[in-house]
């Protein structure tokens, strides 16, 4: 027992201890942390403004004259735009996932804990939403609400909560059968308190995992919208926008899409590895109970 006491025994603490042992996942987390820092410090780090045009210096090659990654078709500094595009990507990724998670939590937990008619209605609604192609739905919402970052966040969030709601419902249904829930009822704990204070903490592992997979999906969704011309309004840079703009000139100036694509790919990879690490770190805890 004595050496056990040094190991944190809270649900999150134990997960974190296991997560840390996974080098790839830890490295990815550091990388994402770095990206967040860069995005926050964008005005300090970017040598130029993302919108500053120089029509005399279009299509400058990388490493030329103070432009680390060259300039684009309007003579804007690609490096600066890349740094600012991180802001768009991460803001939309995190915020849209947060919206999706909030909707999923309310619907999934309510349905599972309440059961009966309420569950039928809520899950029926979820199934209808599931039948919609989420992109189509997001496109529709953006067309209605406009291209501001906020409306894009809401659109992507509302279009992508369905899978998580189902997962949360499944988790709650499972945890609901554990004996401690019956013990809590016998004590007199209210249903809401059981759901929020006691069931939710036991579902925190799977929730973290889906969240970490949900963030890159939201970033992809934003890029998809941008490629359709429905992303954040220019001149605000976004990865999708940069890629689709650069695509026009890809034969002469491949660097215009290589830079955003590389960053895009690395970010996706990092989130996926974090998700894998979280899954490994939390799944073992599930096995203990069975």
């Amino acid at each position: 027992m004595s050496e056990l006491q040094h190991i944190p025994q809270g649900e999150l603490g134990r997960g974190w201890a296991r997560f840390k042992r996974n080098r790839l996942a830890l490295g990815s987390l550091v990388f994402v942390g770095l990206l967040v820092a860069v995005a926050l410090a964008a005005p300090l780090l970017a040598p130029y403004s993302y919108a500053e045009q120089d029509l005399t210096g279009r299509f400058l090659p990388p490493l030329s004259d103070g432009h680390l990654l060259g300039t684009d078709e309007l003579g804007r500094d690609v490096f600066s735009r890349l740094i600012y595009s991180l802001r768009t990507a991460l803001l939309i990724g995190f915020a849209a996932e947060l919206v999706a998670l909030a909707v999923a939590l309310v619907i999934g937990m309510w349905a599972a804990y309440q059961g009966g008619r309420v569950e039928q209605w809520l899950m029926g609604f979820t199934d209808i939403m599931y039948a919609f192609p989420n992109y189509l739905f997001a496109v529709l919402l953006v067309v209605i609400m406009g291209r501001s970052p906020l409306s894009i966040i809401v659109a992507i969030g509302i279009a992508s909560w369905v899978n998580q709601a189902r997962l949360i419902r499944a988790q709650v249904l499972k945890i609901k059968t554990f004996e401690f829930v019956e013990a809590l009822r016998s004590i007199g704990t209210s249903g809401f308190s059981i759901a929020v204070r006691h069931i939710l903490p036991n579902a925190v592992g799977p929730l973290l995992v889906t969240t970490s997979f949900g963030i890159p999906l939201a970033i992809i969704a934003e890029s998809g919208l941008a490629i359709l011309g429905l992303g954040v309004a220019p001149p605000t840079p976004s990865w999708g926008g940069m890629i689709i703009d650069g695509y026009t000139y890809v034969l002469g100036n491949p660097q215009l899409i290589v830079a955003p694509l590389t960053l895009f790919g690395l970010t996706m990879l990092a989130f996926t590895w974090i998700g894998d690490g979280l899954r490994d770190a939390f799944d073992t805890g599930e096995e203990d109970r069975a």
């Binding site: 004996e179 401690f180 016998s186 903490p201």
Partner: peptide, 17 residues
């Protein structure tokens, strides 16, 4: 408050978190 219960499986009935 006045009637309480003890269950068969102690680990299952305690709050794991």
């Amino acid at each position: 408050r006045r009637v309480q219960m003890v269950f068969q499986n102690p680990y299952g009935s305690l709050l794991p978190h």
